[in-house]
Design a protein around this nucleic acid. Structure first.
Length: 847
RNA sequence: GCGGGUGUGGCGGAAUGGUAGACGCGCUGGUUUUAGGUACCAGUGGCUUAGGCCGUGGAGGUUCAAGUCCUCUCACCCGCACCA
């Protein structure tokens, strides 16, 4: 009788051994090539659930695989520890954010450690600790000196009841989440980073990031939104001012029927001064919220200023000037001319306010006499008409001609605009990195001298009143001006938490450096010029913001002399979420899965479709409860088994049980196998069965390696299972069986490292598998000596034939035609053509 | 609204334009067992007049050959700058 696999005990044992031997500690002193694996670090929200775990498991598979492949692997972990949830916790249970955060970190570190991740824990840090954020204060001062950081007015969501700035996620249907009061837009002086100065470089380098998913590159490209167009002026009738507009469609210049200004455009106020209803209209626009989505989705509304604009190229014609809620002050000039025929938003607007719709681009196959726009604007290419000197030109030529003409009459120029806006980094919150500036009435905005860094957060704060406690802190806020010594106040805003996550990849290279964010030599080793983190892994939800900010920050750090690296992440993989069913009781309250299990009358419970695991929906599964029953190896395997990593995976009981059965099966396989000694020499001859097995073994060595490198973990698992089936079916024993089992043990190692280590030990080795290389590939065993392919008649499969791999086309043809089914199918018909694709297919075309 | 993505058996999913459904879950029947679970063996897309026919969200198209390429279309998911 075989011994049962004591999962828990065994997993604990090997983790302890790895830890005692410091198996995952790395230094820069190595002859091996470096490999840097990084998963997006967690926010310490309380506890890890298996939804988070998938990310770290995939990273760990890569890290362990690369280590076996002979790389010097850096695989670190830390905490993205500043953020809003800590303040919410402080308000809800009056616990200090620092205490709450560090308690959470302690819990989550233990959880992560229990997953057997090959992490160098000596490099751990939390971004909320002054040892970390002091460096970003210094870098911010450098950015300021270099002109990368500056201050300007910008709009925030304002809760008029709480007197608090709200995050977009705290604005629900235009109302504050706590107070329910309609949210206002308010202007504040805030800090910005000039990411737009880097727009072209960010765009250019994107082309070279071929280790990134295409979709992420496209998203970033669209986000940066480089567009060329025309910027020119319209005169206002009986008014000395002009309105400057930007358009990407100068070819539609003659199709204009109105001008529209952003509600916060300076000219809007000027033109509407004293007009009744204007202020109400602006207020209405401002209650929509600041998110682009909210603005875009809102019903198109306009306010007629009563003024008329005159067309720069059509003297005498007049156009109404509106203020419109869908025009953004941040983009272009904050003013547009509306061409309803060729822009859907303009068309919606024109229909609503009964403005003219003048088609000026004729689609192919349309007649200029009869062509008319109904309710859909035509935005594609066509031939310009109704357009004076542009008539007859296509889109591209018309654009050039229109720009040329405007330049000739000295009203306007061709211009490049970016959709990308400068990065606003000010947050009116406590739990973030203090911005190291002082405001002095005499000296203005004064940087905190470097020898006074870090500016640390005062611990003595309370959250009894809404708003930022730094604002009302008596001793912290009021300081002497570093320049003139008079009374001054500290900047009470803190940094956007994307600030911390924009450079942490560097900090791991040298996490305990007191003088610099990262030592130059260490940065050069792990993140040299032309290469950064070799494999970065995280959710696709970060495709734009975090990943764009980190790219920008890296370039800004480079320009300030901190690092050589241009791009932080050489390879990127965006993984899907872990979903789970939800359960709602009769009152609509969310139930935990175990609560659902205990309910006897299941009909009272509404079972929801699988959605992303989240605490609020109570559909989370804790890794501890899984490792208790099934072991963490089973969970690791399941996480990457069935679904492709980029796709969502649904956590199910059945799935984890299947993985667990496989863990046990492998243990039993090794336990029950009768094998020759580990050091026995390879025999000269093998039976046909042994050869077949050996081919399967070496195909798996190659296939699993390729699958891991291509992030096809699910396919790697399928291959491993197929090999294990082949091994179970193999009845001969002997040298080939030992080879098979040893290879199996090594290739499961990245996925199920505890089990693999145990099996390695059972196989009589006194080394640690964690230090062993990937199994050696015997290329000569990859070649098949026969090949089986399908035979089609007119594209339908009728038979299957097997021939020696080196047979010629004629042989395939003859064999195909000799098949009974083929004969039957072509009976009475004339064979017109026979297509033989070697190794693939034979297709007999008859007719 | 804008941008990105996904759609294949009962389920998760395989498939350089070349035998659709690998691998697994579930299910059905059987074997073993201390009851169950575990383990093992066999089967498992649909229809069928048993010869085949139909099948990759839907409709067209290209090709000797389409899940894969092209056009249109439907459904669902994610992001949208102060959540991280």
């Amino acid at each position: 009788m075989s011994s049962r696999y004591n999962i828990k005990e065994t997993e604990d044992k090997w983790r302890k051994i790895w830890e005692d031997r410091e198996s995952f500690k790395v230094t820069e002193n190595s002859d091996k090539p470096k490999y840097y694996v990084l998963e997006m670090f967690p926010y310490p929200s309380g506890s890890i659930h298996v939804g988070h775990a998938r990310n770290y498991i995939m990273g760990d598979i890569v890290a362990r695989y690369r280590k076996a492949k002979g790389f010097n692997v850096l695989h670190p972990m830390g905490w993205d520890a500043f953020g809003l949830p800590a303040e919410n916790a402080a308000i809800e249970r009056s616990e200090h954010p620092d205490k709450w955060t560090h308690e959470n970190i302690d819990v989550m570190r233990d959880q992560l450690k229990s997953m057997g991740l090959s992490i160098d824990w000596s490099r751990e840090f939390a971004t909320c600790d002054a040892e970390y954020y002091r460096h970003e204060q210094k870098m911010f001062l450098d950015f300021y000196k270099k002109g990368i950081a500056y201050r300007k007015e910008s709009v925030v969501n304002w809760d008029p009841v709480d007197h608090t700035v709200l995050a977009n996620e705290q604005v629900i249907d235009g109302k504050g989440w706590r107070t329910g009061a309609p949210v206002e837009r308010r202007k504040l002086n805030q800090w910005f980073l000039r990411i737009t100065d880097y727009a072209d470089e960010l765009l250019e380098c994107l082309q070279k990031l071929d280790g990134w998913p295409e979709k992420v590159r496209i998203m970033q490209e669209n986000w940066i939104g480089k567009s060329k167009g025309l910027q020119f002026n319209w005169n206002i009738k009986d008014h000395e001012d002009q309105i400057e507009v930007f358009t990407t469609r100068p070819d539609t210049l003659f199709g204009a029927s109105f001008l529209a200004l952003a509600p916060d455009h300076p000219m809007a106020e000027k033109l509407c001064e004293g007009i009744e209803g204007f202020e109400d209209f602006v207020q209405q626009c401002q209650s929509v919220g600041t998110s682009e989505e909210a603005i875009a989705q809102a019903e198109k509304l306009g306010f007629d200023t009563g003024h008329k604009a005159t067309h720069p190229l059509l003297p005498g014609k007049e156009y109404p000037i509106y203020v419109a809620n869908f025009i953004l002050m941040d983009y272009g000039t904050g003013a547009v001319f509306g061409v309803p025929a060729h822009d859907q938003r303009d068309l919606d607007f024109a229909r609503k306010y009964d403005l003219g719709v003048i088609p000026v681009i004729l689609p192919p196959d349309e007649d200029a006499e009869t062509y008319a726009i109904e309710n859909e604007a035509y935005t594609d290419d066509g031939i310009a008409y109704n357009s004076e000197f542009l008539d007859g030109l296509n889109k591209q030529n018309a654009i050039h001609a229109a720009i040329k003409k405007c330049e000739e009459i000295e009203n306007g120029t061709g211009k490049t605009q970016f959709r990308l806006r400068d990065w606003g980094v000010s947050r009116q919150r406590y739990w973030g990195c203090p911005i190291p500036f002082v405001h002095c009435e005499a000296c203005g905005t004064v940087p905190v001298p470097e020898d006074q860094l870090p500016v640390t957060l005062p611990p003595d704060v309370n959250f009894d009143t809404p708003g930022n406690p730094l604002e009302r802190h008596p001793t912290w806020k009021n300081v002497e001006c570093p320049k003139c010594g008079k009374d001054a106040t500290r900047e009470t805003d803190t940094f956007d938490t994307f600030f911390e996550s924009s450079w942490y990849q560097f900090r791991y290279c040298d996490p305990h450096n007191e003088n610099l964010p990262v030592g130059k030599d260490k940065a050069k080793y792990w993140m040299p010029k032309g290469g950064g983190v070799d494999q970065y892994i995280g959710g696709v939800e970060h495709a734009v913001l975090h990943l764009l900010y980190a790219r920008f920050f890296t370039k800004a750090m480079r320009d300030c002399g901190y690092v050589d690296c241009d791009e932080p992440f050489t390879g990127l993989f965006t993984q899907g979420m872990v979903t789970h069913q939800t359960y709602q009781g009769h009152n609509g309250q969310w139930l935990f899965p175990e609560e659902y299990q205990e309910i006897t009358d299941k009909s009272t419970v509404k079972v929801g479709s699988p959605i992303k695991m989240s605490k609020s929906k109570r559909n989370v599964v804790a890794p501890e409860e899984i490792s208790e029953t099934y072991g963490i190896d089973a969970a690791r395997l399941f996480m990457v088994s069935d679904s492709p990593p980029e796709r969502d995976v649904e956590w199910t009981e059945g799935g984890i049980e299947g993985a667990w059965r496989f863990v046990n099966k492998l243990h039993r396989l090794v336990d029950e196998a009768t094998l020759p000694a580990a050091n026995e020499n390879e025999p000269k001859d093998f039976s046909e069965e042994a050869l077949t097995l050996r081919r399967a073994i070496h195909k798996a060595i190659q296939g699993v390696a390729q699958d891991i490198e291509n992030f096809h973990m699910n396919k790697a698992v399928a291959r491993i299972r197929a090999l294990s089936n082949a091994v179970s079916d193999y009845k001969e024993g002997g040298w080939a069986l030992r080879e098979a089992i040893e290879v199996l043990t090594r290739i499961i190692n990245p996925f199920m490292p505890h089990l693999a280590e145990e099996l390695w030990n059972m196989l009589g080795h006194d080394t640690l598998l964690v230090d062993e290389p990937w199994p050696e590939l015997r290329k000569e065993l990859l070649v098949e000596d026969s090949v089986t392919i399908g035979v089609q008649v007119n594209g339908k499969v009728r038979a299957s034939i097997t021939l020696p791999a080196d047979a010629d086309n004629k042989a395939f043809e003859d064999e195909a035609l000799a098949q009974d089914n083929v004969k039957k199918a072509i009976e009475g018909k004339q064979v017109r053509k026979i297509i033989v694709v070697p190794g693939k297919i034979v297709n007999v075309v008859v007719g």
